[in-house]
Amino acid sequence: MPPLAAFFLKRLLTALPVLFIVLVGSFLLLEAASGDAVDAYIARSGAMDAEQITQLRTEWGLDKGPLYRFGAYISTLAHGDLGWSTAFERPVTSVIAERLPVTLLLMSIATGLAFFLGSLLGVVAGARPGSLRDRILSTGSLALYAVPGFWLGLVLIVVFAVDLRWLPIGGIESIASDKTGLARLGDIAVHLILPVCALAMVYLALYLRLMRDRMAEIWRDPFVKGLEARGLSRRRIVWRHVARNAVLPAITMLGWQSAAMLGGSVVVESVFNIPGFGRLAAEAVARRDTPLLLGVLLCSAITVIIANLLVDLAYGKLDPRVRIGR
């Protein structure tokens, strides 16, 4: 087996206990919440009699104890099946398959933007710590970091969608528009501008601060003095030596942030009416749809694990000391 594939496999296997803990934990939490999927269903249908209610509970397996249901879930899962969603009356896999790409798209663009723009501005600020542009950027990022994402989203909507009408108010694409190919891609891109901004702004500030502070520290390292003494250009020192060293913590953060982004997307997806994973998770809880919630959390956990794997690989590329398998 090539070393990279073996590495991936090993990491996934070590993640299995984590996944199991995630499943047990979320199952127990949802069990602890009062009311079940049938209660949630009744509220939507308005009226039901006792016989119908009993019938539905039996059909959905809710007449059985939690231990039995969890066992049954794990056994279907072992067969590669995520189970049946009571809220959508469809297999969980099909519901998740619709939503996951949307959230991954939103998340990866927002994370990428936050990381690159944030780090870039961090380098600008960190190139000359204490300078005017450092102070402006540092203060600005602090202010941005203090703003909650959903509020930013609402403000963006009111300004750019309601008042100016430059951008669509929400959704992932124009509804029932029959657009295909490039026209559709463009349409999706336009719809993503505001939510990506709302999601990326806050994290952008985080990367900016991280980069800038680490750079400010590195400037004081003796090796920088050495480089200066050797007559290297300022630009070369900033980019090849200071920034490259400073980017490592930012990359570590990138791995952690992939989890936070999933969390943040719950709110942003609701505000921007995007049919993604975050909204699905909220709906699964509101409707006590255990298999759906477990499916969502399982996929989220796997996404986070993969993101961290990629981060580790990037680490190896940037810092020869931590390269894998050597």
């Binding site: 919440a33 009062s34 009311g35 079940d36």
Partner: peptide, 13 residues
């Protein structure tokens, strides 16, 4: 409570 919990508390429990 949220909706399912409210229904259970009032109409079942």
């Amino acid at each position: 409570n949220d909706t399912p919990a409210h229904l259970k508390a009032v109409y079942t429990d």
